[in-house]
Simulated scan of single mutants.
Amino acid sequence: MFQTTPLPLLAQADRATPTVAATEWRLNAPRYGGHSHALVLTEGKATVQLSKGQLRAIAPCLVWMPPGAALTVALDAGSAGFIVSCSENLVSMAISGGQPSALRATADRLILGEIRPGDAGQVATLAATAETIHRELRAPKESGVELLSACVTIMLVIAQRLSPQPALAQADGWPAPQLLQRFMQMVEVHFREQYTIRRYADELGVTERRLHDTVVKATGRSPLALVHARLLEEARARLAESSLPVAQIAYGLGFRDPAHFTRFFGKAVGLSPRRYRAGLREARKDRETFAAWP
């Protein structure tokens, strides 16, 4: 036996070759529970459907998606690349081999990393790394876990180099629906970084007042309330779907102090993160006991 952990439990990988029809992956399927995903797009275009909004990816690029960030990935006809899914255990192993704090921050972010035209070396490295994962999962050899971990480290380092995101676009003069759409897309990309509303407005090229008025008129909620709601949604998902310590979840969501995260979560939910998670486990245990009745 080459490794103690079965490789399919650590990662999955699919290669996409150019076809006459679009190709789609459902990343919220049960087999991907709690996994991070990487789209290595070498040719064509793809649409990443988020829980709110979507990202449009144009090759060559790397899209890194932490757990729960994306629902589906659809490649346009004629596109090519790889979809790699990594368990939290594999991501943790990959991070321990690099700069832990920097790579953890990268792994917890949604990153659309566009590669400059002519940077063939970076494209080739990403493609070769994804191909290595794809090949190893189908024909495991000795030290396969270590190989997969090293490959994920390379992907995270490249993702780190390709971030932070540039401004998505300058929204000055846009109609309100388009400004709202761009703001929601930016929230999905940057909410883990705890952007201020001023920074969102600056990167969109509008005033805070215009952004505030547009969002409130369309949704009935302030920009900050929407950011906090998305942050809370992600916190609930991570508490439910991962076994990470509460402090690590807090840092991954951009809180510098776990106590601040506990206060934020408790004020919104009425329970501390630990009590919330314990309640979920108890409810799950009750369901499993009931299902086992004859």
Rank of each mutant, 00 (worst) to 15 (best):
M1I: 03
T4H: 14
L7W: 06
L9T: 12
L10Y: 05
A11D: 03
A13T: 01
A13S: 15
D14G: 05
R15V: 10
P18L: 10
T19S: 15
A21Q: 14
A21T: 14
A22V: 00
L27R: 02
P30F: 01
Y32I: 04
H37L: 08
T42C: 04
T42V: 02
K45G: 03
K45V: 07
K45D: 09
T47D: 09
Q49M: 07
Q54K: 13
L55D: 12
A57K: 04
L71D: 05
D76H: 11
A80P: 10
I83Q: 09
E88Y: 04
N89V: 15
A94L: 00
I95F: 02
S96C: 03
Q99V: 12
A107F: 00
L110C: 08
L112K: 04
L112A: 14
L112H: 03
P117W: 06
A120L: 14
V123N: 02
V123T: 15
A127I: 00
A128T: 02
T132L: 15
R138Y: 02
P140T: 06
S143T: 04
S143I: 05
S143Y: 14
L147F: 04
L147I: 14
S149N: 00
A150D: 08
V152S: 01
T153R: 14
I154K: 14
S163G: 15
S163Y: 01
P164D: 13
P164S: 06
P166H: 11
A169Q: 10
Q170L: 09
A176G: 03
R182E: 15
Q185S: 13
M186E: 14
F191E: 06
Q194K: 12
I197H: 04
I197Q: 11
I197W: 04
Y200Q: 00
Y200P: 03
A201H: 09
T207M: 03
T207P: 05
R209T: 13
L211H: 08
D213N: 12
A218N: 01
P223Q: 05
A225E: 15
V227I: 14
R230T: 14
L231W: 02
E234F: 00
R236I: 02
E241T: 10
E241M: 12
P245Y: 09
P245V: 02
Q248A: 11
P258F: 06
H260W: 01
H260C: 07
F261M: 06
K267D: 13
V269F: 05
R275L: 15
E282I: 12
A283E: 11
D286T: 09
D286M: 10
E288A: 15
E288H: 00
A291Q: 12
